[in-house]
């Protein structure tokens, strides 16, 4: 089956949308001075291969899209996606090194959004991101499994710390605790450790049965809908349980 053509109208629309004062000024004044190069660990890790220097990565992605006004072939957009997802972690370190304080990370995020809209986000990332919609977390863990894990962890640590509880969906607490779904899936002991600390500190806390994954793969993939959904789940949980604050596990 031939691959679908790129929806250039849509990309043009996004390019216009992003062209606010910041993007416009940044792209207009970047002096190609090279101060950013050494700040990037991709650049230094690849023996100073110039194709990893931040300004070049922006020129090859967002710069290219603006130059061609969105008229790119699927092959070209694939190349752009490869840079946007694979050669930058959006760590923002280069922003501190740029004399103009340009933020390549934001521009990479914008490019990821456009690539994602054309189905060019890394498949594994996209699949995990979609789990946010279906399961409310990136690891496709059902609510039953999650609650079971909590009970299991409570029992497991009974001896270590008597009286420790992992209260799920308790209303009227001070604190809502949310974490990274990887913890539940790969490191369940993490929940128990946090619970022990909360118990020792006398924290009045609860763990929501839905909206407990604080990660947001929609943001990383560049999928605005999933991004908003994942964030909303957490805030909904906080509202539903009437907590005063949210603690994240990081």
């Amino acid at each position: 089956m031939p691959e679908p053509a790129i929806d250039t109208d849509f990309i043009r629309e996004r390019l216009a949308f992003f062209k606010g004062a910041r993007f416009k000024t940044w792209l207009d004044i970047c002096a190609h001075c090279g101060y950013c190069a050494d700040s990037c660990f991709f650049y230094t890790a690849h023996d100073k291969d110039p194709k990893y220097m931040p300004a070049y990565k922006i020129m090859q992605t967002l710069g290219k899209l603006y130059k061609k006004n969105g008229n790119v072939t699927r092959e070209e957009l694939k190349g752009i996606a490869d840079i946007a997802y694979g050669d930058c972690t959006a760590c923002r370190r280069c922003s501190l090194y740029c004399p103009f304080g340009i933020e390549p990370a934001l521009m990479i995020a914008a490019v990821r959004g456009m690539c994602c809209s054309q189905g060019l986000a890394p498949p594994a990332l996209m699949e995990a991101a979609k789990n946010h919609l279906e399961f409310g977390n990136q690891m496709a863990i059902t609510t039953e499994d999650m609650v079971e894990t909590c009970v299991w962890m409570e029992e497991e640590n009974e001896e270590e710390m008597p009286g420790m509880k992992i209260p799920v969906d308790k209303e009227g607490c001070d604190t809502l605790y949310v974490l990274n779904a990887r913890e539940v899936k790969y490191y369940p002991q993490d929940i128990a450790e946090a619970a022990m600390i909360f118990h020792a500190a006398g924290e009045n806390w609860t763990f929501p049965s839905m909206g407990w994954d604080m990660t947001n793969l929609g943001m990383f993939a560049g999928h605005a809908k999933i991004m908003a959904h994942a964030a909303k789940l957490c805030y909904d949980a906080a509202e539903r349980l009437g907590v005063k604050r949210i603690f994240t596990s990081e």
Binding site: A31, H32, A37, Y43, K48, P50, K51, M53, A55, Y56
Partner: peptide, 11 residues
């Protein structure tokens, strides 16, 4: 090299 790669005629 890292400056050459971003340099254009415009610069």
């Amino acid at each position: 090299p890292e400056v050459r790669i971003v340099t254009t005629a415009y610069d």
